[in-house]
Design a protein around this nucleic acid. Structure first.
Lengths: 337, 337
DNA sequence: GTTGCTGATGTTATCGGTAACATCCGTCAT
DNA sequence: ATGACGGATGTTACCGATAACATCAGCAAC
């Protein structure tokens, strides 16, 4: 493996060494069967000898396909989107694409910046975890004609496509589960702030399901600062202070539920005997050998994979049947309810 | 905002509309003070009118700076590296760079693939969470002259630079903590498999510190399949079966510790009275309002930020004092020890 | 023997920017 | 008046690949 002293090995270097022209090298890489076997071998040998790595940026400029997909994620911390990003990246790489990542800390302004920056790479697709965008971002995206997939939610009017589930229905399903296990005075604990959109949807579904059984007092708390576990603890405290007879708490995330669990312990409340606690997300720590927490499982990896596939398909000219794909959810009953 | 019917707005379109040449538009973007104010305003108006977004790939091709940094991460699931990636991405974006991400599932072969794919983007830097690479990857990286930063560990001979901490010392520190709180027969629970390199380092430090006090029987278990919490539970079970008088367990990650905690509960063991349990990583769920787990805190965000800064510095011609940056760690004492 | 076709390879132009050098013009010192 | 200089802007070439078209040899069909 030899490398030119000044910079990178180019396709021209490979061509010269193999005694062919650049385009033949290009063909060996993109369409090997258009090249005679002997020539092909010679070119491949030259590639290996020189340690040549094709410049994707140059190729993309010329072919107008960047083979990059951008993902704009609210946050990576908190493990909510981690598996989705994993799934997305894995499926993309299988298909020769790469993943460009940006975090927004749940800020629409940062999202708009990130979107603009990503468009500068002329991505083959864009994945957004948020569904609330600045007007500017929305316009820019629409004008760009890049396939856009919004995930983890199913907006009524997606910009392009959507892959997710109904947060509303998930909340309702959990309410029904709590009712089915005999609870009659359940409360909701969520978080305030920019990230609470989906929590609110879950709450609405939850409250509606309760209302159908005549339970109309909408018990809820949404602490606004600190870690999620701390908010969960404070949320439970707030709920119990205002409605001391609360017999179940549905938390908008497993992290909140853990906080509630620890607060319950501090207060000497037995779970689930004195109070039932349920979470959302089925994070690893919620599982059988962890907290044993009743929660809602979301197929995070599948959301990522599906979003990736959608983008690949659209670019291959395959129109999906629907602009919205519902991956569903599942209430997982464990020992805290 | 108008967009040409066929594809993207180019710098030429902007130039035409503003009545200047392409290079003037380029200057307005890269070096505004070299352009007269009036001209600058006209160009900026044209950019806004047309919704122009510069093509970074084209710019990079010409300027030979891609403004992309690649990160090859063992896994995103499990929240170990999430904050590091967050920190990395944030610092990079502040400086106009973008983050290309790939996951390897702890496979060196996938790592080699990912590295090759990333080099195709001619990145301004590369960050690797692993320190065990295929010979091929190592050669390719060395030949590429791209600044490489290995993180979360401090290898004796980094490829380029390293940002991390001593896993060995962290293990030793935890051993000393357990001894200081009166434990005399501590065991270690890790995981088997490709990802256990760092766990082994922690174990070695742990065992050495114990040996210094005369405790020479190296108690350890490393279950190999299932979720981390399940392995933690099985690990504790294995340790207790073989050494029933074990009075403390140091787990190679907080997830394992949670599993051990749940297993202890199942066996009616009181923590910390009957057995002390410590973890590693200080994941959110370990905190005060969560498990209250004694653990080792790693400045994950700072590792990411530091790695990013290192790459930016090196590209700006600033040579760092040392090829290895130790960000340290901290034993956090909570209620499980 | 010419035509037409196929397979293998090459030539030229182009993608959308930036670097380097060139030009133009006004101002100021001599 | 003249030349030097510096600020503002333009021209040309090039980054490293691919698309589109061109070429050429070999061979079958008439």
């Amino acid at each position: 493996m030899a490398v030119e002293s000044s910079g990178w090995v180019t396709m021209g270097d490979v061509a010269e060494r193999a005694g062919v022209s650049k385009i033949t090298v290009s063909r060996v890489l993109r369409a090997p069967d258009k090249v005679r076997e002997e020539t092909r071998d010679r070119v491949r040998a030259a590639i290996a000898d020189l340690g040549y790595v094709p410049d994707e940026a140059a190729g993309g400029l010329s072919s107008r396909r960047s083979r990059i997909v951008g993902a704009v994620i609210s946050t990576l911390a908190g493990s909510t989107f981690a598996s989705t990003v994993d799934g997305l990246g894995a499926r993309l790489r299988q298909n020769g694409h790469q993943l460009l990542l940006a975090g927004t800390d749940y800020s629409s302004a940062k999202e708009a910046d990130a979107v603009a920056a990503m468009l500068g790479r002329r991505p083959d697709g864009l994945v957004l975890t948020s569904t609330s965008h600045t007007e500017d971002a929305r316009r820019t995206l629409a004008a760009s004609r890049v396939p856009v997939v919004e995930i983890w939610e199913l907006p009524a009017e997606p910009i392009g496509y959507a892959v997710g589930f109904s947060n509303h229905d998930a909340g309702a399903a959990m309410a029904r589960h709590l009712l089915a296990t005999g609870r009659r005075r359940p409360a909701f604990v969520g978080t305030a702030g920019e990230g609470d959109r989906r929590g609110r949807l879950r709450y609405e579904g939850f409250a509606e399901a309760l209302a159908q059984t005549g339970t109309t007092d909408a018990r809820a708390a949404a602490p606004s600062a600190g870690t999620h576990t701390a908010r969960g603890a404070r949320g439970l405290a707030a709920v119990l202070e205002r409605w001391p007879d609360t017999d179940a708490v549905f938390c908008a995330s497993d992290a909140l539920a853990l906080g509630a669990l620890s607060e319950a312990g501090r207060r000497g409340l037995r779970v689930p005997d004195d109070i039932a606690i349920a979470g959302f997300g089925d994070f690893e720590f919620a599982g059988e050998f962890g907290l044993g927490l009743t929660t809602v499982r979301i197929p995070g990896i599948r959301i990522g994979e599906t979003a990736a596939q959608l983008i690949l398909d659209v670019n291959a000219g395959i129109r999906p049947d629907s602009r919205s794909i519902d991956v569903g959810f599942e209430v997982v009953e464990r020992s805290t309810t």
